[in-house]
Design a protein around this nucleic acid. Structure first.
Lengths: 187, 187
DNA sequence: CCTATTATTTATCATTTGTAAAATTTTTCT
DNA sequence: AGAAAAATTTTACAAATGATAAATAATAGG
């Protein structure tokens, strides 16, 4: 997925504005296991996934709880950093070797003040993250772990193949044993 | 809480821009029980609570599940309507007689195209809703019902007094019986 | 102030989910 | 291919939660 597609997909930009924003975007690659964001650090960076899988997780006492998976075409931010320049909850880890587009959020904030099209692009970006986040909340509040697992299987069959079951179980809010039981039932 | 305070609290606006936006805002009052948003209707309106309590809930089979409470100073939107002009999940009901500020989102969208300060105000508005929504998700995913009830008690003691326990229980994702057990334990 | 209604708590039992450990399967490395 | 390591599933039991119904408490209307 190209950076043009990703940018336009969020909100179409006039050619000049798109050129402006693209000046601040670079392509980067990191290996599986690389930590993109750390819970205890503010990092004013926006990534877009060109290729690969990513997960966000938080430390909960002795174990870690995965609460987001990201795939090709999706943005990766630490919301608290991006929005409030504060530390967030999460580490973000690459689940496989990834190609990413990188954009410094401080540069972006300056562009928001200078270009109304970029300001509205940034608004749409936040709005779309808002909808995604609400959907995750609704899914969590209204669907059973079994249903949510089935949905994950359907939407991201490759992810379920490649990611450790423990991560998926914590994402679903259940133990790995329970997830095994679910898998046994729907087989 | 005045509309000026609410607007500036989201993001400071130059006097001219604030005047522009205020032209589209009206003060309205509705009685307890009034339905502000309906799940099956698109409603392009933004409200801000001047005074009162509000809840959002969705129908889950035969019973309803409350998933948000709003109080003085907070915005009330149907996110799917506001962001995507689509039907959302929720009904929004006034829990007591309320005074509200009302703003047509279609007008607002036009202003976004015309005034960069208002565009950035709209961006900050979405970003703040994003942080709020993420916090709700994190709270749900990482804290026990008991902890979340204690937090609700602390943050909104008056709400816990005035709202039916069934609503609070469904908000916490447990049954009313379980909530009664929790209350008995922490007493 | 009393009664009817509604809301909340308590009790009992069934079901679900978790914990811990063992068994099995899959993956990795030589 | 075969051994070692890691991941997943299964088992047995304990703990937590839900469902239902009964008991108690709170609220509203006359």
């Amino acid at each position: 997925m190209t950076i043009d597609e990703i940018l336009d997909n969020i909100h179409p930009l006039p050619a000049a504005s798109k050129q402006t924003i693209k000046q601040y975007i670079t392509a980067v690659s990191y290996p599986r296991g690389h930590i993109l964001f750390q819970a205890d650090r503010i990092k004013m960076t926006v990534y877009f996934i060109k290729k690969g899988f990513v997960r966000a997780y938080a430390h909960q006492g002795d174990h870690e709880v995965t609460f987001w998976f990201g795939k090709e075409g999706e943005p990766v931010i630490s919301m608290k950093s991006y929005v409030e320049s504060q530390k967030g909850y999460e580490d973000v880890e690459l689940l496989e070797d990834c190609e990413l587009y990188e954009l410094n959020a401080t540069d972006l904030q300056r562009l928001f003040q200078e270009d109304i099209h970029i300001a509205n692009w940034g608004r749409r970006f936040a709005e779309q993250e808002l909808i995604r986040t609400e959907e995750r909340l609704i899914s969590r509040q209204f669907r059973t772990a079994t249903d949510r697992y089935k949905e994950l299987l359907k939407e991201n069959p490759d992810l379920v193949q490649r990611v450790a079951l423990g991560h998926i179980a914590s994402y679903l809010g259940i133990t790995q044993v329970s997830l095994s039981r679910i898998r046994a039932e729907i087989r």
